[in-house]
Design a protein around this nucleic acid. Sequence first.
DNA 1: CTCCCTTTGAAGGCA
DNA 2: TGCCTTCAAAGGGAG
Length: 511
Amino acid sequence: MLEVELGMLEAGPKAGGDAGGGHTGHYGGLQEAMQAGMHLSRGGRVNAPRSSSLRAGLSFQLLRIRKYLQMKWPLLDVPAGATLKDSRSPSPAHLSNKVPVVQHAHHMHPLTPLITYSNDHFSPGSPPGHLSPEIDPKTGIPRPPHPPELPPYYPLSPGAVGQIPHPLGWLVPQQGQPVYSIPPGGFRHPYPALAMNASMSSLMSSRFSPHMVPPPAHGLHPSGIPHPTIVSPIVKQEPAQPSASPGGSSKSPVTVKKEEEKKPHIKKPLNAFMLYMKEMRAKVVAECTLKESAAINQILGRRWHSLSREEQAKYYELARKERQLHSQLYPTWSARDNYGKKKKRKREKLAQQQSHDTESALASKSKKPCVQYLPAEKPCDSPASSHGSMLDSPATPSAALASPAAPAATHSEQAQPLSLTTKPEARAQLAFLSGKAASSSSSSSSSSSSSSSSSSSSLGSPPSLLSRPIPFTSVPSTALLSSPPSFAPSPQAALAVLQTQPLSLVTKPAD
DNA sequence: CTCCCTTTGAAGGCA
DNA sequence: TGCCTTCAAAGGGAG
């Protein structure tokens, strides 16, 4: 076992810097936009397509978006003259014509739309059906077009807001990464279904694609605005689909299956932590050369816990809005729709393998891939090993109630997996970052390990009984924001361990 | 090419 | 009701 003492790591952040400064983020849509006819000048400037028809189409779409935004966020200023080329923030920081390959500076208000709108360009008109007062098919509760609890802007403190992407990041062109960003790799990413609607998805991500808008396809929201969470399972384009006869009453199971697969994949709305990760990942990546998401996620997990109550609350609020918006966009969608799909693939594959070779299947089952990021801890070299018994106080007690969905229980088992089995240098960086994060928090670190909520058997630490947060919906926000419970201080022994062996990292046994 | 890893939170499934 | 499982993102690594 190789141990790396964090304390020995004196090196500063490798990649220097302020993540907000301008490291490159990922943006697959750029390629797409270029392919689609966008003109990318040397500075990364994206110009609207030269084709007038394309421009006209885009303008139309822009109008629709604008209209939607007006309904959604009436306070948004939508100048009449907004054009595609205007679709950048007016602020000096945004004057750059660069495509948002660069993550937005965190000092910038992410809610600031890059397109400045004015609502005199179009009349308010009647809101789309999904925003009109209607009866929720599920709950039977009438849904107001714009409930009072859904303010035009998130009620976040100015400073706090600065790091949160617009909840409609997928919709509102902005410098930062949208909540539903377009991953690299063009349209292998989340919205292949919208490939034909690339203009929209690109538009909404402040990437302009001249793809003209085809008639609304499935996956297109009634408002005409596709949501990035829609992902068509169809990746390969099938040249002709004669089987898809409209009147096909007698559909073979295969056909049914095909059509089933054709249904757009609407992704789950991101939860608070996911939103946080999305925003902070780049920062962490910038601070180190670490790229492995698993390791980065560990860092982010710890940072998440070290966030202050207010900071976390921002993300919970944001997530709540996301869910709300998601439910408005897809009233009939349920998480159930996506349930078991990934596993299905796995099972199918496994089944295939099994049918092919039972023994190999067994082997594959028993094979435990590569790296264990959170192996069983050494008995006492890390607080993480104290698992459930260590119901210490959260690093920042207030953070325990940072949000409705982040009850004390969650924080009582703050994840501080200190033993990591990644590459040595990665581990070192991780250790450094973790320590940094920990030290940055007011009192961090008397924490126990958190076993992941599911399938943690391979992690070596038993699942905590307190691992499940109180469902957000089940707790009134007022109550949740009330005074935090008084936790007994964390075991001093554990604290001592932390102090003496902060963040020791353990590698895999080197065979 | 696909899955795994890792994190937290939300939600579905099941007893 | 409570526990367990799955899925969201991300990208390198492994098969």
